[in-house]
């Protein structure tokens, strides 16, 4: 899987929190966990339940071993690795491949959402 879109510099990220980048006109939430093995996670910024672009502004956490972000609007949890909503299995967001190399944050093409879009 290639991550060919350079979204930003590592210095634009906020440790243990999220920022939002525009990737080909689409809003992507980037979450940065700078632990021993620094990791970057990318999912849609759009919260399908609150219907607003806000997921990058949620709190990152871990629920029963699953890395999640809590929506700042109505507090549902979305998995950073699968995009699934923990509270409502009919809802999911897309996960974007992302990586850090040479101080740059790179993003690839989004995986198909686990849930077929209703539209």
């Amino acid at each position: 899987m290639s991550c060919d879109f350079i979204a930003c510099h590592v210095t634009d990220l906020v440790e243990y929190s999220g920022v939002c980048a525009l990737v080909n006109g689409q809003q992507v939430a980037l979450f940065y966990l700078p632990m021993r093995n620094p990791k970057i996670y990318a999912i849609d910024n759009f919260d399908p339940i609150g219907a607003a672009n806000v997921l990058s502004r949620g709190i990152i956490g871990e629920l029963r071993g699953e890395l999640v972000v809590a929506s700042p609007l109505y507090k549902q949890h979305f998995s950073l690795t699968t995009g699934r909503c923990l509270e409502d299995e009919t809802v999911a967001v897309r996960v974007w491949p992302a990586e850090i190399s040479n101080g740059l944050v790179r993003v690839g093409h989004p995986q198909q959402s686990l849930i077929e879009s209703a539209a």
Binding site: E15, G50, A52, V54, R57, P72, L73
Partner: peptide
Amino acid sequence: DKPHVGLQDTNDTFLANMQKDG
């Protein structure tokens, strides 16, 4: 401040009250 910023609730984290449209 850096160690605290990721801990803050929705509104504290941007020092303002988030509304339904973000």
